[in-house]
Amino acid sequence: MPQSAQPNTQQAALWNDVSGKAWVEMQPILDGVLAPFERLVVDAGYPGEGGSVLDIGCGAGATSLAMARRVGNDGRCVGLDISRPLVALATERARLEKVANASFEVGDAQTYAFESAHFDTVVSRFGVMFFDDPVAAFTNIRQAARRGGKLAFVAWRSPVENDFMTTAARAAAPFLPPAPVPDPEAPGQFAFADGAKVKRILEASGWSSIKVEQADVLCQIAFGDLMTYVTRLGPVGAALREVDQATAEKITTVLPGAFAPFMEDGKARFNAACWLVTAAA
């Protein structure tokens, strides 16, 4: 599958450098936290035994590997991600875990020259909210699916509904310069918070039978893993790479207390508020 030029240059730079490398290092932690969504997406997108599946924004490959096992040896799953470090890890995991019907490629789904009408299902676990032009991206993705093929993905709902996800940023805010007001139309974690917007994007991209349903999933993470996560990834992780040592110490000191309301028996437990989106090509 050859590829044309990528428009998502900022995302490509991010995921091929600091963020991609951090996700590689934290893969076991992240897969553990996101495991419930892996099951949700695989169940929603399962095309049947022997089916062919495309996983957009496959990351370190957990969802791709799970789907490859589900479709069996006569099926296959191809994972696509913009991050070379994550694709390299996913490829190695498939080899080590002996999942021969899973393969991985580096590419931007907005511009990738997919083979037309090739997949029974397209899935994604939090991998589709980052396109500069989501209509162009989902139009291109639709062309990769067979007529009547499935689309199934999860995306975060609003920050207000995901207070756990924004706890670290709120705790760190008093020690950092004022952050610009987020542009709800810009690519990012909460770019699909508006379910009506998601439906409009898919309609404009030629998908049909669109359903945007609320999915609330209980997640948990050990305290030590949580502190590693919030100081390495997300807006606080990015800020800590830029501030002086004294400011960094102030931020890391307040973080445990900020997460105290979520803690029980050494683990943070929280509700993850998402959309489960399904459609047909």
Rank of each mutant, 00 (worst) to 15 (best):
S64D: 02
L65G: 03
A66C: 10
A66E: 11
A66F: 09
A66Q: 10
A68Q: 07
A68V: 14
A68D: 07
R69L: 15
R70C: 06
R70E: 15
V71C: 10
G72H: 06
G72L: 09
G72S: 10
N73Y: 01
N73G: 13
D74P: 02
D74N: 14
D74H: 15
D74I: 08
G75D: 08
R76M: 13
R76L: 12
C77N: 10
C77I: 07
V78R: 01
L80H: 02
L80R: 02
L80G: 01
D81G: 06
I82D: 02
I82M: 07
I82N: 02
I82V: 15
I82H: 04
S83D: 08
R84D: 03
R84F: 14
P85M: 06
P85Q: 06
P85F: 09
P85N: 07
L86A: 08
V87R: 08
V87L: 11
A88H: 08
A88V: 10
A88C: 05
A88E: 15
L89C: 07
L89M: 12
L89G: 02
L89A: 12
A90C: 04
A90E: 06
A90K: 06
T91C: 05
E92V: 05
E92P: 04
E92H: 10
E92F: 01
R93A: 06
A94G: 12
R95G: 12
R95V: 11
R95F: 05
R95K: 15
L96Q: 13
E97D: 13
K98M: 12
V99L: 05
V99Q: 02
V99C: 12
N101L: 01
N101C: 04
N101K: 01
N101V: 04
N101M: 03
A102M: 09
A102L: 08
S103W: 00
S103D: 14
E105Q: 12
V106M: 11
G107D: 04
D108M: 01
D108N: 14
D108V: 02
D108A: 03
A109N: 04
A109P: 00
Q110G: 06
Q110V: 01
Q110W: 03
Q110K: 03
T111M: 03
Y112V: 04
Y112N: 02
A113D: 10
A113S: 10
A113R: 13
A113V: 04
F114R: 01
E115M: 11
S116G: 08
A117G: 10
H118P: 00
H118F: 14
H118Q: 13
H118V: 09
F119I: 05
F119C: 01
F119M: 04
F119D: 02
